[in-house]
Write a protein that binds this DNA or RNA. Structure first.
Lengths: 120, 120
DNA sequence: GAGAGATACATAAAGCATTCATATAAATAT
DNA sequence: ATATTTATATGAATGCTTTATGTATCTCTC
């Protein structure tokens, strides 16, 4: 399971079914790489490919139940690990972090837009 | 320049000359991968290999001037990019971030120890 | 001191993820 | 109707990494 595969599954979990070309742009890889990646994950049962009635060229990539379960399990694992780290902080430290969450979220948003910009 | 190469250069910048096996452990790759990586970077002029008088088996990997310059340029690029993001925050947001820096640093430290633990 | 076992690193082959090049089909523009 | 663009598939090449293995050196035990 490569980084790009995992990221692609997370993207699908977040945003729902996407075209292969969309996913390639979002994940910063070439279209053929995404085509192969999707095929491998389809064979693993994590995603399925569907056509698009409005455009016969398009393949829509959708998470399967197994795929969704996989993503959510991984996400929960990350959340749990983070919680364990947070548990080791002092109350003051936690408070400061909580107070900084809006700023951190804003930073993440700005960074995300930056990445989109630089890909265009 | 792979992620592992860049990370290895940063490690050398931070910690000084290291053995190939140390670097492999630190960067989470196998020893042969690190051997090859170091050779490639040596050929690029970014590192040099030195023996160790106390143990003839050992190769110590050291940054060259060009390597140091490369690492510091990349670091500054990252700092500049981050500063541009910070410039887009409100004063309140910046304040909250500054107040949270000790907590963030502590988190990073804990996470770093976690990673070391899981590699052993 | 000799030999066994462990350690450090080099080298080759294999595997995996990705890009580049190209082809086919469908959609859009002229 | 034709030219151009878009969406995706496929094959070949490339780069990074792991696995397997070999050589040299060091350390420990007898």
């Amino acid at each position: 399971m490569s980084i790009t595969s995992a990221a692609t599954l997370a993207t699908l979990d977040r945003s729902g079914p996407r075209r292969i070309t969309d996913l390639a742009v979002i994940e910063g890889v070439t279209q053929p790489a995404m085509t192969v990646l999707v095929r491998v994950m389809e064979e693993s049962g994590l995603v399925e490919r569907r056509g698009d009635a409005s455009d016969k060229r398009v393949t829509l990539v959708c998470l399967t139940k197994a795929g969704t379960s996989y993503v959510q399990t991984r996400h929960q694992t990350g959340v749990d690990a983070f919680a364990r780290l947070i548990d080791e902080l002092t109350d003051d430290e936690v408070e400061a972090l909580v107070a900084a969450l809006p700023a951190l979220a804003h930073l993440a948003e700005l960074e995300s837009q930056d990445q989109e910009g630089s890909k265009r």
